[in-house]
Design a protein around this nucleic acid. Structure first.
Lengths: 157, 157
DNA sequence: GCTTGCCTTCGAGTGCACTCTAAGGCTTAG
DNA sequence: CTAAGCCTTAGAGTGCACTCGAAGGCAAGC
């Protein structure tokens, strides 16, 4: 558990975590859920915790990304499992994975162990997409820095 | 001119250009336009060169991001200026700057030198946005790598 | 008992950035 | 002469990912 967190930090640092203040992205940047969380959360609490809107949470449920139970009053009750799922989905969204791909992945998980290779392939493809995105962003950043430092402020490339 | 290109490379490298094959992003990653380009290009040539669709180019013109001349037949003629502008816009889009912000910037440029500080501020704000985006992507990448390496393939966070 | 404030559903609406369609014009090749 | 293959316009359509609205349920506080 703590080892997992350490490994995460390690991986994260190996990609040059910058010196900017690390914005709180809700739970999305922790690997294990905090142990002191209540076992059953309301939709508002999950939204706050994970950093997405309640609207988005309901939407995720509607399109089948998460299953969430209900209490006697018909209100959603997020248990540990549901919270895990939400955090997972939020992470993938954070890296711009299209909802459709996330849905596909979730579907594969629901289909059972036979789909493991396909899931892995999906993740690896997404990893490659993130790498490309990073590359482009870094290039853009370099251009913008060039523009800022040399100054000028015109519209030339 | 060559010094400028060198400086760009330098900046780019200072952000750890990864070892992935650098995708051809049209002209968007070069600082100076190649000298051997024809002085007047058709919309299709610009689209090919810059890596955006002709539809997008027309759209950019329609919303006022670029001004483009016409030939006798009413066809668009992109001169050096227009091409510069397009490359500039494409670069900003590449880093996910919203069209509205780009339009604002272009508008400031058209307004003249008095707007220079505001333009600089806009660029700096955008730079900060890119840094945040990079940060999030790196974090997401770390999580995904963790998932891929430890394997498992489930939906837990 | 009523207001406040959270929650519910379903369906419709929004914003962004294109993307495409329809109807037509010019130019060159066969 | 005509067909191919570019281009033009205005306006409508698309896909994504939410986001909101309307109408109503339930529980706590005044």
């Amino acid at each position: 558990m703590t080892a997992a967190v350490e490994r995460l930090r390690e991986l994260e640092n190996s990609y040059e975590t910058p010196d900017l203040p690390s914005l709180s992205d809700g739970l999305v940047r922790t690997l294990d859920l905090p142990a002191n969380l209540p076992a059953r959360l309301t939709i508002a609490q999950v939204a706050e915790l994970v950093g997405v809107s309640v609207h988005a949470l309901r939407y995720y449920e509607r399109i089948g990304l998460v299953e969430v139970g209900r209490d006697a009053a018909g209100h959603r009750v997020y248990d540990r499992d549901a919270l895990s799922r939400v955090v997972f989905v939020a992470r993938l969204r954070m890296s711009d994975m299209p909802i459709q791909d996330i849905a596909r992945y979730v579907d594969l998980v629901n289909r059972g162990d036979a789909t493991v290779p396909e899931r892995l392939a999906l993740m690896q493809a997404h990893r490659a997409a993130i790498m490309r995105r990073l590359q482009k962003l870094r290039a853009a950043l370099a251009v913008i820095d060039y523009k800022i430092t040399t100054y000028g402020g015109d519209c030339s490339p």
